[in-house]
Nucleic acid binder design. Structure first.
Length: 156
DNA sequence: GCCAACGTTGGC
DNA sequence: GCCAACGTTGGC
């Protein structure tokens, strides 16, 4: 049975990997996530076809830069096995992987970057985790309505 | 199982 | 660069 489509916000630091990098590469493995809550979303909740707001964190200004889609379900994160990777984790093995990542594909770059300030100003978006102080979770579930509102703000 | 110390995230 | 908020670690 087909799972119902879900919606997500995924953070990336544009200095490391921006929406333009995703547009160029078309798709990417969302590796390097080392937070159990975020991992569990990828492992247990995400399925291909889910839609994603691509959020620029630690940016000037921070905000939603565009849209992406989940294109492949979670697989063990190869960087966790790679001793040369900054994301290497000795407690993760191929036999018993600790970390997982999904594949994310480029969908669209917003013609209007929606800054965090604009998100905060929109009453319809007041429940989004990203506007809450101290919310560091790098993968956050959002509602279909929030996704729709953000799309309208980004396409205007 | 508690909790202090520490490291990281991310807005400002 | 600062620092509040939060997650993780490890001693007990």
């Amino acid at each position: 049975m087909m799972e119902k489509k879900k919606y997500w916000l995924m953070k990336s630091e544009p200095d490391t990997f921006s929406i333009d990098d995703l547009a160029k590469n078309k798709k990417t493995l969302w590796d390097g996530v080392r937070n159990y809550q975020a991992r569990n979303f990828m492992m247990k909740e995400m399925s291909p076809g889910d839609e994603v707001l691509f959020y620029h964190s630690n940016a000037q200004p921070p905000g939603v830069a565009g849209l992406a889609k989940i294109s492949k379900k979670a697989v063990p994160d190869p960087t966790s096995f790679d001793k040369n990777s900054p994301y290497y984790d000795e407690k993760s093995s191929k036999e018993n992987p600790r970390w997982f990542c999904v594949e994310v594909s480029f969908a669209k770059k917003f013609n209007h970057f929606v800054s965090l300030d604009e998100i905060k100003e929109n009453k319809k978006l007041k429940n989004m985790l990203v506007v809450k102080k101290g919310q560091r979770l790098s993968i956050q579930p959002i509602t279909p309505d929030e996704f729709k509102v953000l799309c309208q703000m980004g396409m205007r």
